[in-house]
């Protein structure tokens, strides 16, 4: 599914290398977690994969089902099946949440040569999915993320994910700012989306989220590359011991 090979990335604005030879492979149907201390480059990885401006890839590659992601516009990556759940979802004043969702869904359908959803079909779909995530009809009508609580914003990201049905989901610290109940709602939403042809890359600081969303593989990231890869037990180890020993071990 997702294959990242020897990825080197620097900031466009200054001569600062953030990713320094990161390699990673997420096969179809798997959930991989990336954990790591602050400043290790986790969010940069998610932005570079989804095509945000401001980064320069100096070496390496990233492919989604064999297609090179790095040459594509952000919307082409989305149409190819990539989705990023933002750490800080963006507010868009005046644009109804429903309008936003429908524009996005139809843009992707169009890009894939599918027919657009009719208003009726779209409404039915969005209402059902919203109900699963305890998203009220009112929240669907309000402008995108404007005045949403932290938990509402994150649930809204998962709603978008559910509507867009991506093949590769990247979740950037989706657990930050969530209380226990919200975390359960979000996790349930994600777990419901797990399927043999969909993969997840879950970026998080804490093991806590991984109790709800069970990963197949855990990667520890530091200083722009993957230090260690293992099973779910690796996350537990980090939770107990912190990153100190792992970092020392890797030198």
């Amino acid at each position: 599914m997702l294959k990242i090979d020897n990825l080197h990335v620097k900031l466009e604005s200054e001569d600062k290398q953030i990713l320094k030879g990161l390699s990673l492979e997420v096969p179809a149907g798997q959930v991989h977690a990336i954990m790591g201390p602050n400043g290790s480059g986790k969010s940069t990885l998610s932005y570079v994969l989804s095509g945000r401006d401001g980064y320069e890839v100096t070496e390496g590659s990233a492919t989604l089902n064999g297609e090179s992601l790095l040459d594509m516009e952000p919307e082409e990556r989305a149409a190819a099946g990539l989705f990023l759940a933002f750490q800080y979802p963006v507010e868009i004043p005046g644009v109804g949440n429903m309008t936003f969702l429908r524009t996005a869904v139809n843009a992707q359908r169009k890009a894939r040569g599918q027919e657009e959803l009719s208003s009726g079909d779209f409404l039915k779909l969005v209402r059902a999915k919203a109900a699963d995530l305890h998203i009220s009809p009112d929240m669907l009508k309000r402008p995108v993320n404007v005045g949403f609580s932290g938990g509402e914003k994150k649930r809204n990201e998962i709603l978008q994910m559910a509507m867009l049905e991506p093949r590769m989901c990247i979740m950037d610290e989706t657990d930050s700012g969530l209380d226990v109940d919200a975390m359960r709602l979000v996790s349930d939403g994600v777990n419901a989306l797990r399927s043999p042809d969909r993969s997840f890359l879950v970026i998080t600081h804490y093991q806590r989220l991984l109790n709800h969303i069970q990963p197949d593989v855990v990667h520890i990231m530091a200083n722009g590359r993957i230090l260690k890869t293992g099973g779910p037990e690796l996350a537990l180890q980090v939770e107990e011991e912190g990153y100190g020993d792992l970092l020392a071990e890797a030198g």
Binding site: G51, A78, V90, V95, A107
Partner: peptide, 25 residues
């Protein structure tokens, strides 16, 4: 805002139109 829209599949002009229409709502 534009990146957020584009990461959801809208092209740049669609994204601008959406944001501006929101501004004019």
């Amino acid at each position: 805002q534009l990146f957020y829209c584009r990461s959801r599949g809208m092209d740049e002009e669609e994204a601008v139109a959406l944001v501006v229409n929101g501004f004019c709502r």
